[in-house]
Amino acid sequence: MQLWKDVLKTLKHNRLVVVAASFLALMSVIVTVGPMFVSYSFDEINLDATNEPPSLKHWFGTDPLGRDIFVRTLIGGRISLMVGLIATAVSFIIGVTYGAISGYLGGHVDELMMRFVDLLYSLPHLFLVICFLAFFSKDLLILFVALGAISWLTMARIVRGQVLSIKQQEYVEAARACGTSSAKIIVRHILPNALVPVIAYTTLTVPSAILSEAFLSFLGLGVQPPLASWGTLLSDGIISISVYPWQLICPAAMMTATLFSLNVLGDGLIEALNPRKR
């Protein structure tokens, strides 16, 4: 794929993007294997060492129950990143399938399918998710699905627009003239070309899903204790902000750096994929 080689080359020239990508790679490794190398577990309570400031023993200090905040931040990061990736994957699968079918079939079916998307678009999503989480269970799985279900709409619209314009190209017509089946035309010819702008949007879905999870956890509706996510750590940290500010600052810095890198990477991709700006 010549296009991807070009994109990669453009990205490598953008120093900020390289730094962001390296940081994310490092972050993923630390979050995955890091907790194994710390001698505390995320739910280990030690009432003799509560609210300790950062030290060599506890890099980020301890919380009111004497739990090590560094380990909790790593575990929280693991969950936050997982939420971001799974929600994005869900929205990618639903959005691409829906958009491709709608765009390819066209006509009345397309009209109907897009009206449905418009309808869902105008619902107050986060309010509905909050209802759902508050009234049923605060299950992590529901959170994943709910966040994924919100973000597929934009994805479907982008894919549909792409498919609509690509399906009129000559090479698609040629494939159809050769007797290729519709499914094969979509998968082999249309989707690979339609996915270019979708990839950039997907990268930006990850930080927005992480942000939504943190938002819900902050309100006490997401991840439940003793498990931690960045949202719950921040919401715990705010309580003692005037006395033990590091309980807020340490996880906040980690989260902000990660979101910043993801946004920089997404913006870099969009710029690299835009032929006019290259």
Binding site: L211, I238, I241, L248, A252, M255, F260, N263
Partner: peptide, 22 residues
């Protein structure tokens, strides 16, 4: 612009409180 979308309100708010109020 990038920092604005990367710093969630529940980080920014308490930080501002820490600086300007406390």
């Amino acid at each position: 612009a990038v920092i604005g979308v990367s710093v969630p309100s529940f980080v920014l708010g308490p930080t501002l409180v820490l600086i300007f109020s406390l």
